[in-house]
Every structure is written in structure tokens, then in C-alpha cells.
């Protein structure tokens, strides 16, 4: 049996949760077994997780805020009661802090940020993930009886195939030693960077924070999230949470547009898993062009507004 933890936030399932359920179902098919989902608390659309492949949903009640300790205890108990051989979480900040705990509790081999459906070799499962910040791919063999994985975001598309599933409610022990006193969410309705499908990013070529209007307009037209290079965040031109790269956020959107960013290896480390990269740079020798799908060698102050215009035109 494959058990997947479907994470909800503010009473809703995120895309990453639907990806995880789809991935769990496909993993169950490889093993020739069933897939069940475990969720925490009430959220909109719990039963419809069945459509993505869960044959039953176990809803844990009584855990009021996220604490990896109480969550891992409750989820691993479900895994044991159900005899799960594989447990899957999304590679979100929540999933990442659960993965290691689940591995210890279930005496399981673990691999984080897996990006392909596992293959089976007897009771051994093989999975792949990007390592060395995207410069290589490693295949892992997991020999333990129970295995736990986190699924890298945007690795597969959620697939609706089945029907709603039944929900079984189970109470869990709260007892958290972490006391959450404040949660701050960024404003606006664009996706946060780690989950964004479209990203518009800019670097030192922007000359100063006062020039970001053209980047924001392009992002708005696309419905994209904005990002920046490290020196831009370090000098306070842009907020820290926008910093992508080796020491910032690692992202893998469908589209990454980079304006005035040279493409240093530490920057690429965080963005080179993007499906499509567009680079705008006035220097034809900029290293970023080597990692790009589409390049525009010109002054960004002229090109960026033109892209916004072209998008408006295409929309009609």
C-alpha cells in the first residue's frame, strides 16, 4: 500500500498535494497495490482527492497547527496501521520537515525531491532526483521494507481519473511543543516562488530599485511571480524572499524570464530546472545565454516593455 500525505493550506489543497496524490497512485501501480491519502483537518475537496487516485482518505483531527513532531507521529501511525510500504509527501517546507522524521519512525530509506515515478526491481525501488544543484541526476536504490519520498514540485501533472473517495476520520494527539505566535503571508494573489509556474526575474542590470516597474508590469500581464538575483536582494533593492539561486530559493517553473542577470553558476543552480528559460541581456557573451532556450540580446529597458505589449496584443 502507498500512503500519501496531501497537504492543505488555509483549507485548500495546493497543486503540490494533487501532484503528490497522482504520483502516489502511479507508484502504487508500479507496485501493483492500492493508494490511500492521509490529510490533516478539514479542507475543501477532501473527497475529490479520490479522483487523483486515493481509494480512501484518512482525515486526522485534533492537530491544530503544523508541527513536524506531532504530524509525523500521527502520519507514521496511520502508515503502520495501514501497512504502508511507501509513504509520499510533497517537497514543500512542510513535507521536507516531515520526511526525515517519517524515515526515522518507520525505519525507512528516504529520498527527497524525487522527480520521476519509481521503478521496481524486486522489493528494491529505484528513484531519481537532481543533485549538485541540477548539474547531475542521481538514481537511488532503496532496499528497506518501507520507503519514504518527497516529490519535487512541478515534476508531473495532477491527473483526474477516478471518482470521489470515502473519508474516514481518526483523532490524533496534539501535544505540540511549538507555539506558533504569528504567521505572515505575502500580499497579492500570485503563487509564492517555490510553487510559481511563471517567473519574471531581474538582476543588477536593472541599475536600481526605482526601475522595477517594467518588471512588475510584465509579471502582472503574465500572472507571474517576481524574483531576483542575489546581489539585488543583498543590496536591498528587492525583498530577500525573491532571491533565487544556490543560496536562495530553488525553483522549477514552466517559464523563467531573466532580465539583466549574467547567469553566474550559483544563480543557475537555483533556476536551471525551469522548463523554458528566456534571457534578456545586452552582452552577447553573458553566460546565461548558454542555459537559455530563447535569448534576446538587447537593452532590457527597451525589450521588457515590448514583451508586455506583445502579450497584451496576443490576448487581443
Amino acid at each position: 500500500m502507498v500512503l500519501v500525505y496531501a497537504e492543505s493550506q488555509d483549507g485548500k489543497y495546493k497543486k503540490s498535494a494533487l501532484e503528490a496524490v497522482t504520483f502516489a497512485k502511479k507508484t502504487a501501480e508500479v507496485l501493483g497495490s492500492a493508494c490511500k491519502a492521509v490529510v490533516v483537518g478539514q479542507a475543501e475537496g477532501t473527497a475529490s482527492l479520490g479522483k487523483y487516485g486515493a481509494s480512501e482518505i484518512i482525515q486526522l483531527n485534533g492537530l491544530d497547527h503544523f508541527d513536524s513532531q506531532t504530524f509525523a507521529k500521527a502520519i507514521s501511525k496511520v502508515a503502520q496501521d495501514e501497512g504502508a510500504k511507501v509513504v509520499i509527501v510533497a517537497d514543500s517546507s512542510t513535507g521536507k520537515s516531515l520526511l526525515g522524521r517519517l524515515a526515522v519512525r518507520l525505519d525507512a530509506g528516504s529520498v527527497s525531491a524525487v522527480n520521476q515515478i519509481p521503478t521496481a526491481d524486486g522489493s528494491v525501488l529505484k528513484v531519481k532526483k537532481n543533485v549538485f544543484s541540477g548539474k547531475a541526476v542521481a538514481e537511488y536504490s532503496i532496499q528497506s521494507d518501507v520507503k519514504v519520498f518527497s516529490l519535487s514540485g512541478n515534476s508531473l501533472k495532477p491527473e483526474e481519473t477516478g471518482a470521489d473517495a470515502a473519508i474516514r476520520e481518526v483523532s490524533a494527539e496534539a501535544n505540540s511543543r511549538v507555539n506558533v505566535i504569528e504567521v505572515n503571508k505575502q500580499q497579492g494573489n500570485v503563487a509564492p516562488l517555490p510553487e510559481a509556474e511563471l517567473v519574471v526575474s531581474a538582476g543588477r542590470g536593472m541599475k536600481g530599485p526605482e526601475n522595477w516597474g517594467i518588471i512588475e508590469e510584465l509579471a502582472k500581464e503574465l500572472g507571474a511571480t517576481t524574483a531576483c538575483s542575489r546581489p539585488v536582494a543583498d543590496t536591498g533593492w528587492r525583498p530577500h524572499h525573491e532571491h533565487v539561486g544556490q543560496t536562495g530559493v530553488a525553483i522549477k517553473p514552466n517559464l523563467y524570464i531573466a532580465a539583466g542577470i549574467s547567469g553566474a553558476i550559483q544563480h543557475l543552480a537555483g533556476v536551471n530546472s525551469s522548463k523554458c528559460i528566456v534571457v534578456i541581456n545586452k552582452d552577447p557573451e553573458a553566460p546565461f545565454f548558454k542555459a537559455a532556450d530563447y535569448g534576446i540580446c538587447a537593452d532590457l529597458f527597451e525589450v521588457v516593455p515590448r514583451i508586455t505589449e506583445a502579450l497584451k496584443k496576443a490576448k487581443g
Binding site: 537532481n130 532496499q143 532556450d293 525589450v303
Partner: peptide, 27 residues
């Protein structure tokens, strides 16, 4: 419980397609 069985390098990127800066409709 876990061993790396093999490493591979990612598929080589296809050549970057350069686009005329005057023609963003093409992009």
C-alpha cells in the same frame, strides 16, 4: 537503506534560439 546506484548528466540543453529584439510578437 539507500545507495546511489548511478549518476547521469542532465540532457544537454538545445542551442539557445536568438530572437530579434524588435519582434517580441515572435517571442
Amino acid at each position: 537503506k539507500v545507495v546511489v546506484s548511478s549518476f547521469t548528466l542532465p540532457d544537454a540543453k538545445t542551442e539557445c534560439k536568438m530572437i530579434d529584439p524588435e519582434n517580441m510578437d515572435e517571442l
